[in-house]
Write a protein that binds this DNA or RNA. Structure first.
Length: 562
RNA sequence: UGGGGCGUAGCCAAGUGGCUAAGGCACCGGGUUUUGAUCCCGGCAUUCGUAGGUUCGAGUCCUACCGCCCCAGCCA
């Protein structure tokens, strides 16, 4: 499967992780890199995960190594199978292939258990009867060392017996844990006799009720990496301290290989929140319509919104990999889809807020067929037929009663070009009692068919249109950023939800679309000329009643002039 | 006040002691254009958190200071 983007494979400098991978290959430390993407199946993947997926799978593709998909499922109280399926689908949709390397940390529970006993045998782990509160109190603080647990001195035999009884269900949840015996006065808190196993009476989505003790992340992750012979274990910055324990476990167990953990900065985007907890809150409190709401930056939301896998890969490529916590402008993501869709999306015409136009001098019984290009810069994308008739719809904001100088569109007495059609001039207009313009009377110049005049006359403006009697009616959802401030969760004292953008979704009904749009498939992106990129919504559309999602607007320099 | 990290333009980000500090986004000009889109051209850091020091030479090495992030779950 090809997963390269147009922007990769260039002579761009390697990021610091690829430099390491590169050196390790050149030095012969590893013949090929083996990476892994290790999600916990407790929620949906989002754009932040995409960065990690593109990094891990990207490296394995570039260096002909492997990338494993491994579910880090060590906490049965939080994890569910439905998440496993959605995560697999999302990774595949992004264009990556784990081949036959699909793993679950839970597949290693037996081995992990044996390693735990081995640690006990080596005098490096003990069963502790302290309660969770007591353990916390014994741990000390950032500036004060912890105290040894009174159970720290138990014999190997006693620890072994206790640990086996823990496994066999002899004790209540929370009553005992297995702890590593390291150093309660370590300046690194993660090394103060961390918990390795806890008792949890919960059914696991894969192992069912086989176990009532479950290994903790720090014990599981390094050993899983080792068992899979991962060469480079890439994770985010907050695990930097944990690397001490990662290395301790592998070193004291004398394992056959020792993967290198390397940390990089997670993705932060402006105008959104990224934590699973906050995303869940948006869903639970109905601020959005679910995990795949097109405004959500989940992979499923982006997919439904109309983002392409390529645009997301491009984006990840664009932002780079570093160790500095940073905020990427939402505009960079938006720009990545624009760039991608500009290349691939066929152009069509759709009138979002229709204003009716009657061409007074166009014969009532006349119909014409106009040929339009599907992509002006790519003739290979072909052409299509547009019906033309006396009554049309144009965009309401393409007409102004008192247009300023720099407004190139329609106004009383002004002439514009209908894209691929004729030049028309507005001769008069009608208004209702409230002062709303309801109808434009125009005349057309029969000599300008196709959009060019023979006399060399220039018109500045070109507007889109749809033949009234041929138009397809549709709904259009205009999506915008979910939050209206750069850092919605920037202030701990202010609820991030107060910054929800009330205009993040506008629903337009009675939009007039060109006939070709009646047969478009869900998930296929088109450009509504002069407006933006749109995509048929797979969930809300019904036969004959299309619903389009706006993926992103076109750049609009007129908006700046205004 | 302990430990682990990080500071290069408005936002990302190259730079691994030696020619004039890459590139992208954003922004500002100009050109092309039957999408106010795309595309093209040009502009955009005398300076790398600050202050000292080493050196013929420092964004790169040393020292001190300042600022920001992470760590005290039987979460990952």
């Amino acid at each position: 499967m090809s997963t390269s983007t147009e922007t990769s494979g260039s002579d761009r400098p390697l990021d610091f992780i690829r430099q390491i991978v590169d050196q390790d290959q050149k030095s012969g430390k590893h013949s090929v890199p083996v990476t892994r993407f290790p999600p916990e199946p407790n929620g949906f993947l989002h754009i932040g995960h995409a960065k990690s997926i593109c990094l891990n799978f990207g490296i394995s593709n570039e260096y002909r190594g492997r990338c494993h998909l491994r579910f880090d499922d060590t906490n049965p109280s939080k994890e569910e199978v439905e998440y496993v399926e959605s995560i697999k689908a999302d990774v595949q949709w992004l264009g990556f292939d784990w081949q036959d390397h699909l793993y679950f940390a839970s597949d290693y529970f037996d081995k992990l258990y044996d390693y735990a006993e081995q640690l006990i045998h080596r005098g490096k782990a003990y069963v502790c009867d302290l309660s969770a509160d007591e353990i916390r109190n014994y741990r000390g603080t950032l500036t004060e060392p912890g105290k040894d647990s009174p159970y720290r001195g138990r014999s190997v035999e006693e620890n072994l017996e206790l640990f086996r009884k823990m496994r066999d269900g002899a004790y209540a949840e929370g009553s005992r844990v297995l702890r590593a015996k390291i150093d309660m006065s370590s300046p690194a808190i993660v090394m103060r006799d961390p918990v390795l196993y806890r008792i949890v009476y919960a059914s696991h989505h894969r192992t069912g009720d086989k176990w009532c003790i479950y290994p903790m992340y720090d014990f599981t992750h390094c050993l899983s990496d080792m068992l899979e012979e991962i060469t480079h274990s890439l994770c985010t910055l907050e695990f930097q301290d944990n690397r001490l324990l990662y290395d301790w476990v592998l070193d004291t167990l004398e394992t056959p290989c020792h993967p290198r953990q390397i940390e990089f900065a997670r993705l932060n985007l402006t105008y959104t929140v990224m934590s699973k907890r906050k995303l869940l809150q948006l869903v639970d409190e109905y601020h959005v319509d679910g995990w795949d709401d097109p405004r959500m930056l989940t992979i499923s939301g982006l997919r439904r919104r109309g983002f392409t896998p390529n645009s997301i890969r491009k984006f990840c490529d664009l932002i780079g990999i570093g160790k500095k916590q940073s905020w990427i402008d939402m505009g960079v993501l938006e720009n990545a889809v624009r760039d991608d869709l500009n290349e691939t999306a066929p152009r069509v015409m759709g009138v979002l807020e229709p204003l009716k136009v009657v061409i007074d001098n166009y014969p009532e019984d006349m119909d014409e067929e106009i040929t339009a290009q599907n992509h002006p810069q790519k003739p290979e994308m072909g052409t299509r037929i547009l019906p033309f008739s006396r009554e049309l719809y144009i965009e309401r904001n393409d007409f102004m009663e008192e247009p300023p100088r720099k407004f190139f569109r329609l106004g009383p007495g002004r002439e514009v070009r209908l894209r691929y059609g004729y030049y028309i001039t507005c001769v008069s207009y009608e208004k209702d009692a409230d002062g709303n313009v309801t109808l434009l009377h125009c005349t057309y110049d029969p000599e300008t068919k196709g959009g060019t005049s023979t006399d060399g006359r220039k018109v500045k403006g070109t507007i889109h249109w749809v033949s009234a009697k041929d138009a397809v009616d549709g709904k259009v959802y205009l999506y915008d950023r979910l939050f209206d401030v750069e850092h919605p969760d920037g202030d701990k004292d202010v609820d991030f939800k107060t910054h929800l953008n009330p205009e993040s979704r506008k629903i337009l009904e009675g939009c007039k679309l060109e006939p070709s749009l009646a047969e478009i498939e869900a998930g296929v992106q088109v450009q509504f000329e002069r407006q933006g990129y749109y995509c048929l919504d797979a969930v809300l559309s019904t036969p004959g009643k299309p619903v389009f999602n706006r993926v992103v607007t076109l750049r609009d320099s007129w908006a700046k002039i205004k």
